[in-house]
Every structure is written in structure tokens, then in C-alpha cells.
């Protein structure tokens, strides 16, 4: 056989084999590669390259070697799924380097991390002062994870005891001018409703590049024609405003009326509306 034909055949064989093997290795790869997995990945690639070009080597030998190099990490992965001890051994354990705001020099030495490297890692996380850190660990993949002291952490809604309603993920219902039925039904809505909403916004489906529905069933769109201004959803602010107005009206009526009974009725309902408002405001305030 001609040499170049042989190389073409080998290239395609190993391309396909590599593709299938990496698929089989799974998604975990890249993101959280342990050093071992990283090295096996490179080795598999090298074997493929070596056998593709080295015509004196047999194709089957290459394939066998590649499958073993793939199989081993997979089996190790399966075993470590089941067993914590083996998992710690294979994937490594996190090492604590800062505890109670104090640097643990011994652990740092164990990981062969210099203080400069630690500072660099902290700086990359926007921490410039070690005393701001409550707790820090070096993860098995070499990253440093930090927990700031409470007073240095960003303020959250929980910190100021603000009751925030939970929000579901938005659904993308229009893409490139086409309606996507599946997310639409996930949101519990249908095409009829969508067409109605689009009519309210005075746009056609063809002109919509992207349309999303938020947790409250409000539609927001991005148009191909960026010169057209689409109004933002007004349903919730309008509702909040009209409820506030009614509450004020009822209070006014209760002052104006002379009948004692009517006064009570107005008062009672205005208070009721007040309670309602405090309950609804977090939901209706646009977040």
C-alpha cells in the first residue's frame, strides 16, 4: 500500500477512535481534571499521533494501548464513586491553608505553595489582605477557595432580613423568529397566549430575535430591528400603583364619611389592603 494512503486511513481511524474514547470518558474532563486524568488525556493523544505517523507500528497496537489508557481512568472513576478512601487517594484532598484567619504554614509547605503564590491566588479572588480571610483551602486541582470573614462578605438579602421571593429560571420561547413549543409548555403557556402578548407589544414573530418569559409569565423580547423600542412589561408596576391608589382612596373615604358604620367598613378594608400591599410589594417590585 502507498504510504500516504496508509496515513489517510490511519488518521481517520484514530480520529474516530479518539472522538469515541473522549466521549466515553465523559463530561467531567476539562473543568475539573485531576492531574492524573490530565496526563492520561495527553498520553492518549500522543499514542494516536505516534501510531498515525509511525508507519512501522501496527494500528491494532495503537488502538489497544489507547483503550487501556481510557479504560483505566474510567474504572478508577467508577471505583472512587463508590469508595471515599480511594476517592481521596485518586482525586486528592483539599488542604486547609488559612483557618480562623491564620495561615497554616505547615500545610502550605506540604503543598509546596510559597506565600507569594498564595497571595497571588488570593489577589485573583480580589482579596489583598490575608486578615480578611476566615478560611481558605487549596483544592485538588490547585485552585484556592476562600471564605471571607462575615463582615467582608458582600451583603445579601438574607443579611438585611429582606424577604425575597424565589424566582424560577426564565424560559426562552422565541429564537430567530421561531416559536419554541417545548419551553413554552414548560412555562405552562401556549401559542395563543404568546401571539396575544406579541400583539400587545405590536411586533410580529418574524421580527423577534429572542423572546424570554420570566418567572411571572412576563414576556421580554429582543428584536432584529434595534431601532424599535419595545415597552418593558408594565403589568406588575401598574397593579402595585393601582392597589396603592385604592388604599389611599379608602382612607380618604373613611375620613369623609359621617356614617360611623361606613367609617368602620372603609377603615377595615383600607387596613386589609395595606397588609396585602406589604405582602405583594416584594413580588411586584421589579427585580
Amino acid at each position: 500500500m502507498l504510504n500516504w494512503v496508509e496515513i489517510v486511513i490511519r488518521s481517520f481511524t484514530f480520529l474516530i477512535a479518539l472522538f469515541l474514547l473522549t466521549k466515553w470518558l465523559g463530561k467531567k474532563q476539562l473543568a475539573e481534571l485531576s492531574f492524573f486524568e490530565y496526563v492520561t488525556g495527553i498520553t492518549i493523544g500522543s499514542i494516536a499521533a505516534e501510531v498515525t505517523m509511525g508507519l512501522e507500528r501496527h494500528i491494532m497496537h495503537g488502538l489497544i494501548a489507547m483503550s487501556i489508557w481510557t479504560l483505566f481512568p474510567i474504572i478508577m472513576g467508577l471505583i472512587s464513586l463508590k469508595n471515599k478512601k480511594i476517592r481521596d487517594f485518586v482525586e486528592g484532598k483539599a488542604t486547609i491553608v488559612i483557618k480562623d484567619g491564620k495561615i497554616l504554614e505547615d500545610n502550605l509547605k506540604k503543598e509546596r505553595y510559597t506565600i507569594d503564590e498564595l497571595l497571588e491566588q488570593l489577589r485573583s479572588k480580589d482579596v489583598f489582605q490575608v486578615s480578611d480571610v476566615e478560611f481558605a483551602v487549596i483544592e485538588p486541582n490547585g485552585d484556592v477557595s476562600i471564605l471571607l470573614k462575615k463582615e467582608n462578605r458582600p451583603l445579601t438579602a438574607k443579611d438585611i432580613q429582606l424577604n425575597q421571593p424565589s424566582v424560577k429560571e426564565p424560559q426562552t420561547v422565541i429564537m430567530d423568529g421561531l416559536i419554541l413549543d417545548e419551553p413554552l409548555s414548560t412555562a405552562g403557556l401556549n401559542r395563543g397566549w404568546l401571539n396575544e402578548e406579541l400583539e400587545k407589544l405590536e411586533v410580529t414573530v418574524d421580527n423577534v430575535f429572542l423572546g424570554q418569559i420570566d418567572s411571572y409569565g412576563q414576556l421580554t423580547v429582543d428584536l432584529y430591528d434595534d431601532k424599535i423600542n419595545v415597552p418593558s412589561p408594565k403589568e406588575k408596576p401598574l397593579l402595585l400603583a393601582s392597589l396603592k391608589k385604592c388604599q389611599a382612596d379608602l382612607e380618604l373615604f373613611s375620613i369623609q364619611t359621617e356614617s360611623e358604620k361606613a367609617k368602620q367598613l372603609y377603615n377595615k378594608n383600607s387596613q386589609k389592603l395595606n397588609r396585602l400591599l406589604s405582602k405583594l410589594t416584594p413580588l411586584l417590585n421589579d427585580n
Binding site: Y216, E235, D249
Partner: peptide, 24 residues
């Protein structure tokens, strides 16, 4: 005032139908 409340009621019922979060 009553009419305003009626339309508010409609909006509330629409929101109740469309919201996907149980609590809301």
C-alpha cells in the same frame, strides 16, 4: 375605586395563573 380594584383582581388572577413559583 371599586372598578380599579376589579381590574387589579383580574391582573392578580392572571399573575396567579402565569407564575411558575408555587409560593408566588
Amino acid at each position: 375605586c371599586m372598578v380599579t380594584l376589579k381590574s387589579a383582581k383580574e391582573t392578580l388572577s392572571k399573575l396567579a395563573q402565569k407564575s411558575r413559583d408555587e409560593q408566588a
